[in-house]
């Protein structure tokens, strides 16, 4: 309704509206394992203030968060823990790989270090740097927001694929066997 009482409509797609809501309410889960974690804390604090982008509600339980920031080196022994924490997060979930170590192993090209977390979990945004500056982290966050708005993230593509197969349920996770039976082929 407008001020004079006449009917006014604002039309949009429901998916776009949901994506708009999602991108402004990212709840980060901080997976800070080394010095990138300190830079992530600086980004969250008042000087750079990640709360401007709606990502200030840092949760230390993966069940309450939807964006995982992997900040720092992930050792071989840490890999199953990272995978477990990722699997405990509810869909839709996003992953930001922060820094050279998380993205590619960095300078640690040795037996004990995972060569990039994308060997274990899917990643949406990579932020380069050793460590990245807070501006870089914010740029990564804004890129992730753009991707969420366009529906390009891994979680949203998975959701779309499940909807096409009539398997999507907001509160139930489909098993890999069900998805395979419905004829879904990975890209």
């Amino acid at each position: 309704m407008s001020k004079d009482g006449s009917a006014v409509f604002f039309t949009t797609k429901l998916d776009d509206f949901v994506s708009w809501g999602r991108k402004h309410s990212l709840w980060p889960y901080p997976f800070g394992t080394s010095c990138c974690g300190i830079e992530m804390m600086a980004t969250l604090c008042s000087d750079y203030d990640m709360a401007r982008f709606g990502a200030e509600a840092v949760r230390f339980s993966p069940k309450q968060a939807d964006m995982m920031i992997v900040a720092g080196i992930v050792n071989t022994k840490m890999a199953p823990i990272l995978r477990t924490v990722y699997e405990q997060m509810a869909e839709p979930k996003w992953v930001m790989s922060m820094g050279a170590c998380a993205s590619s192993g960095g300078i640690f090209n040795v037996y004990s270090v995972t060569q990039g977390i994308d060997t274990i979990i899917p990643v949406d945004v990579y932020v380069p740097g050793c460590p990245p500056s807070p501006e870089g982290v914010l740029h990564g966050l804004m890129s992730l927001q753009d991707m969420i708005q366009k529906g390009e993230t891994r979680a949203q593509r998975r959701e779309q694929a499940l909807k096409r197969l009539n398997l999507f349920h907001p509160f139930k996770t489909s098993t890999a066997g069900e998805i395979k039976d419905a004829g879904y082929k990975a890209e």
């Binding site: 890999a79 199953p80 995978r83």
Partner: peptide
């Protein structure tokens, strides 16, 4: 004590390859 229980080999032996990666994504 340090490496994963499923690890094959002993990393500080001189004949262990420098980049002998072994990945264990799942928890034992």
């Amino acid at each position: 004590i340090l490496m994963d229980e499923r690890w094959v080999g002993h990393p500080l032996r001189k004949d262990y390859p420098l980049r002998g990666y072994q990945l264990f994504p799942d928890t034992p």
